[in-house]
Design a binder for these strands. Structure first.
Length: 497
RNA sequence: UCCUCGGUAGCUCAAUGGCAGAGCAUGCGGCUGUUAACCGCAGGGUUGCUGGUUCGAGUCCAGCCCGGGGAGCCA
């Protein structure tokens, strides 16, 4: 048996491939079967004149997603999409699939999510999973090459503390337990044992967020480094992101093409990334530059909307007298137009809201989603916003020695509107300061005794960050929603399949 | 929790308050080195649920259920 990905090495040879029927077209004396085997797709041709009656009969009974072994000669052929095809001499059907629900046509998201277990077989989803794998593998490579230890944090935790997010509550035998929202605190302990570590695992947040950026269960990489300050932390985050993007561009071009990703946007991801202090970010958001950008955006969206509406009118008028093929084109174009129009209408609704949000923004406020969008729109690389006001951030972040109102933290915002993909900080290493913060945040000091021990016995400057895998995959693939970046997404209200 | 949009055939969607339809998928037939092929014929419906208004409700009203994406919060 050989795989479709290896066909180019077997031109002229007779091979056997096990796979599934992705799509099939038949005619009087020819059957064209698009076969997928997990490694790729290949067109297979069964010709009535070349095979015996049984094989010919078998080829004509195939349905979408039927499983089979095919045997035939590999040929290079321009007419085949992959460039290679198999001229079938023999075929062994394993199972004829009945009425496969996902046809090669349009489907709504609800239907596709209900059939996620099958949707994963579709071309786009296949490509996304392969990019996800590349990203995950490149992250491990990046850290392992730099001497980091991969160690895992527990998933059950005993205290609901840390404040901010809503946790999933469960039972640990007869005591209450929670699913982890971050491995960071444990990573700190491990970093003080091993120097440089990273965790790679699932995290859970019970927030009732229904947006394209949220999952209730998602994967996070959290490096944690002893003897590391915030600048080193930012440098590491930047190098890691460049490394990931570079690997994808190097190894997953075929998948990027399937996804229709604009590669030039990714090729621009090279260090150094802009580093902007929170204070400067506020200033930039309230500047004339941002106001002008919003105004331009409003004008250009309105113009685009008008052009699209005109085009829609024209092709609608053309529709009734059009031939079948043209009708098909028109319907597709109308779908595209309607999607784009709803995007534009959303923008046009949003722009005044964003404007107002920016006008009301004052130093000390946390940056909202729209503020982040407005910031990232002004750059073509990820940006690193650092040193936020202490009030807006978590208790464990180190106080800025140069300004007690700030903490040494960084959020990395991905370009093209993808928003926050990394949150990190230098950790507070002074035990007195940490105790003050625990009290201020009204956290249970007892639950943090072990954490405080890290400051008691050989405290050192240390830093780390967390990278959201799904948001990263979504950004690199240029997707509309993170739910397509993980095999089985857990979103608000969805636990099936 | 709030705002907003939606739920009609297996799928994607139409249908001034007046006979529930089209394309795709499926089945049958035809045809072509086909590229989501194409052409012809056929089968396919508790219009999310409950109630109300009306001579008449897919359409209007109320409540509920489910889903989309946005706010808050975050990766």
């Amino acid at each position: 048996m050989v795989t479709i990905s290896d066909l180019s090495k077997h031109v002229g040879q007779t091979v056997t491939v096990g796979g599934w029927v992705y799509n099939q077209r038949s005619s009087k004396s020819l059957v064209f079967t698009i076969l997928r085997d997990g490694t790729g797709m290949c067109q297979c041709i069964t010709s009535e004149t070349d095979v015996n009656a049984d094989v010919w009969e078998a080829a004509n009974t195939l349905t979408q997603e039927s499983s089979l072994y095919v045997t035939g000669v590999v040929q290079k052929d321009e007419r085949s999409l992959s460039g290679y095809e198999i001229h079938i001499s023999d075929m062994k059907i394993i199972q004829i699939a009945e009425n496969y629900p996902i046809t090669p046509k349009d489907h709504g998201i609800e239907f596709l999510q209900n059939n996620r277990h099958l949707w994963l077989r579709s071309k786009r989803q296949w490509a996304i999973m392969r990019v996800r794998n590349e990203i995950v593998f490149s992250i491990h490579r990046f850290f392992q090459e730099r001497g980091f230890m991969q160690l895992d944090a527990p998933i059950f935790t005993g205290n609901a503390a840390e404040g901010t997010t809503t946790l999933f509550e469960t039972k640990y035998f007869d005591q209450p337990a929670y699913l982890t929202q971050s491995g960071q605190l444990y990573a700190e302990a491990m970093a003080l044992a091993h120097g440089r570590v990273y965790t790679f695992g699932p995290t859970f947040r019970a927030e009732k967020s229904k947006t394209r950026r949220h999952l209730t269960e998602f994967w996070m990489v959290e490096p944690e480094m002893a003897f590391f300050d915030l600048d080193m932390d930012m440098q590491l985050a930047e190098e890691m992101l460049c490394y990931i993007v570079e690997s994808v561009l190097k190894n997953k071009m075929e998948e990027m093409e399937i996804l229709g990703r604009d590669i030039s946007k990714l090729e621009a991801i090279k260090g150094p990334f802009p580093r902007i202090s929170y204070t400067d970010a506020i200033e930039l958001l309230k500047s004339d530059k941002t106001r002008d950008m919003l105004k331009d955006m409003q004008l250009s969206r309105a113009e685009e909307l008008k052009a699209l509406q005109t085009e829609e009118k024209e092709i609608t008028a053309e529709f009734n007298n059009a031939k079948k093929g043209r009708k098909f084109q028109i319907e597709n174009r109308k779908k595209e137009i309607s999607v784009r129009i709803s995007e534009i209408e959303e923008d046009l609704r949003n722009i005044p809201v964003w404007k107002e949000s920016v006008e009301n923004l004052k130093w000390g406020d946390d940056l909202g989603g729209s503020d982040e969008t407005l910031l990232t729109m002004q750059f073509d690389k990820p940006i690193m916003v650092h040193r936020y006001p202490r009030e807006a951030k978590a208790f464990y972040m180190k106080k800025d020695p140069e300004n007690a109102d700030l903490v040494l933290c960084v959020d990395v915002l991905a370009p093209e509107g993808y928003g926050e993909i990394i949150g990190g900080s230098q950790r507070e290493d002074d035990i007195e300061e940490m105790l003050t913060q625990i009290k201020k945040h009204e956290l249970d000091e007892k639950a943090f005794e072990w954490y405080l021990d890290l400051r008691k016995y050989g405290s050192v400057p240390h830093s780390g960050f967390g990278l959201g895998i799904e948001r990263t995959v979504s950004w690199i693939c240029g997707l509309h929603h993170v739910r397509e970046t993980i095999p089985f997404a857990r979103t608000l209200g969805r636990l099936y399949p």
